[in-house]
Simulated assay, not measured.
Amino acid sequence: MTANVTDRFAQAPGDPYRYGVYLRPDPATCAAVTAVTSQLRAQYGIVSAGAFPPHATLVGSRHITNPVEEIVAAVTRGLSDASAFTVHNAGVRRQGVGLVYDVHHLADGLTPNPDFVDLAARVDKAVAPLQTPAPNHAEHHFDRDTFRAHLSLVSHDMYVRPDLSEEVEEYV
């Protein structure tokens, strides 16, 4: 008997779903990200960063089996007394194999924005009690020290096309 690829998803309730909480930028920044990712798709066939609406991931790929309404309520409670803060675009930076708009830093481009890190930590704390072990997927844990708020311009495609890395960076 041949196993169906979806058979592995039956191992736990909620599979194959993962949840994330994302911060959407202002319309002008969304337009800039979309313009760059659309040009990269047309010019190089790079699609991974442009496959999703522009966003900064606060927490991502969490295995949660609770109903969506419970997830939304938990995040809402976790952010109920959160205050607005300014986010700066520190420009294009290399992150891993990709390129991003760096929204992690303050206007000086060097100092991490503590409000952004705290926001991600609050969201992580809100959803952590809802998480269940994922039998078929690597866990994604929040770490204040490694968290980097960003808007992806080029991402996973570079794992399979590292030969384009320099040219794409120059193009961006």
Rank of each mutant, 00 (worst) to 15 (best):
A3Q: 13
Q11H: 05
A12V: 07
P13F: 05
G14E: 01
D15E: 10
P16F: 03
P16T: 04
Y19W: 15
V21L: 07
V21H: 02
D26Q: 11
T29F: 10
T34D: 15
A35H: 14
V36T: 10
V36R: 04
T37M: 05
L40W: 02
L40T: 02
A42G: 15
A42R: 14
G45V: 07
F52D: 11
P54G: 09
H55V: 03
T57P: 00
L58M: 06
L58T: 00
V59G: 10
V59F: 09
G60I: 06
R62E: 13
T65V: 14
N66E: 15
V72G: 05
V75G: 04
R77K: 14
S80T: 12
S80D: 15
A84G: 14
H88A: 12
V97D: 13
V100E: 00
Y101K: 03
V103D: 00
D118M: 09
D118V: 06
D118Q: 14
A120I: 00
A121I: 05
K125T: 05
V127R: 00
P129A: 05
P129E: 04
Q131N: 11
T132I: 13
P133R: 09
D143C: 08
R144P: 14
T146E: 14
S152D: 10
D163K: 03
E169P: 05
